[in-house]
Design a protein around this nucleic acid. Structure first.
Lengths: 148, 148
DNA sequence: ACTAAACAGTTACACATGCAACTATCAACT
DNA sequence: AGTTGATAGTTGCATGTGTAACTGTTTAGT
């Protein structure tokens, strides 16, 4: 046990565990309310924010594999929340937009997210929340660009 | 777009993404070096630290589903890195320990983890790393006990 | 014009995962 | 002793996921 690694001091492990604890709780909420999966929520959230984008861009921003995105898009389309349109100039590209219904659902999901965020911030306290954000910003700055 | 949620300000999302960026890099290392999966690494790490424990306890500490733990334990046993022994007093319980070979591999994995941690700390900078740890500690404190 | 490489996106297949149901064991209560 | 409920752990099955291979399209080089 001389070379024992203390997991409670191992940053990647703590990061994963914290992320699982938080995101599982949030996932439970939108799953119960709208029956959407995690990849679907992520796709929805990015599309709602960007307004009009492509599957590739969603993959880039969310760090999701392109097959995951592809399936999430197909599923959201089936529910009538999203529509595709092939780009005229470059017909490989599909532009994705929310439908009217999709926008309505998105607005509700956004509200759900905001209230969850508020609750989380209250639970953590202002100082700890700020510290967490600073730390995450540093990780994003170091890893986002270089990593694939 | 009036009710748009800004993902770059949404904490659960940032937490998940940061955790994925970091843990994917680390996972690539031990996968390439030893061919072990994520559940296996986690099981290994907890067992190495605790010295002697049960599958249930591993699940509790790692937030992994018990079937995941069960399969990881079976796989590590097949490789001869771990051995089980049924508790005499309560024969439902299986005590898990690392074998001699397992301990050797564990020591190498621990070293790999430490060097990764060092690299990460350098990348983030002392101040940002400390902030991240404070934030994670707050999440752990709030969610670990209550959540399932 | 033609070929090769690059890119957006989908699908087949093998593998990983979670839920529910299962075995086996123990503890508590009657 | 017998029944009920809880616990540790495993397994069947349906679903989720990544790799690699695929289609269709564009770009670059010859």
């Amino acid at each position: 046990m001389t070379d024992c690694l203390l997991l409670e001091e191992f940053l990647p492990y703590r990061l994963v565990r914290a992320s699982e604890l938080v995101s599982r709780r949030f996932a439970a909420r939108y799953r119960e309310a709208y029956g959407i999966s995690r990849p679907e929520w992520r796709t929805f959230a990015i599309l709602g924010q960007l307004g009009r984008t492509t599957a590739t861009e969603i993959g880039r921003q969310s760090t999701m594999h392109k097959t995951k995105v592809s399936r999430a898009v197909a599923s959201l389309e089936e529910r009538g929340w999203l529509s595709r349109r092939v780009d005229e100039a470059d017909r490989r590209i599909e532009w994705l937009t929310l439908t009217a219904t999709g926008s309505k659902v998105y607005a509700e999901l956004a509200e759900l997210a905001r209230s969850f965020q508020q609750q989380l911030a209250d639970d953590l306290g202002a100082e700890a929340a700020a510290a967490l954000e600073r730390g995450l910003a540093a990780v994003e700055a170091r890893f986002s660009v270089t990593s694939g």
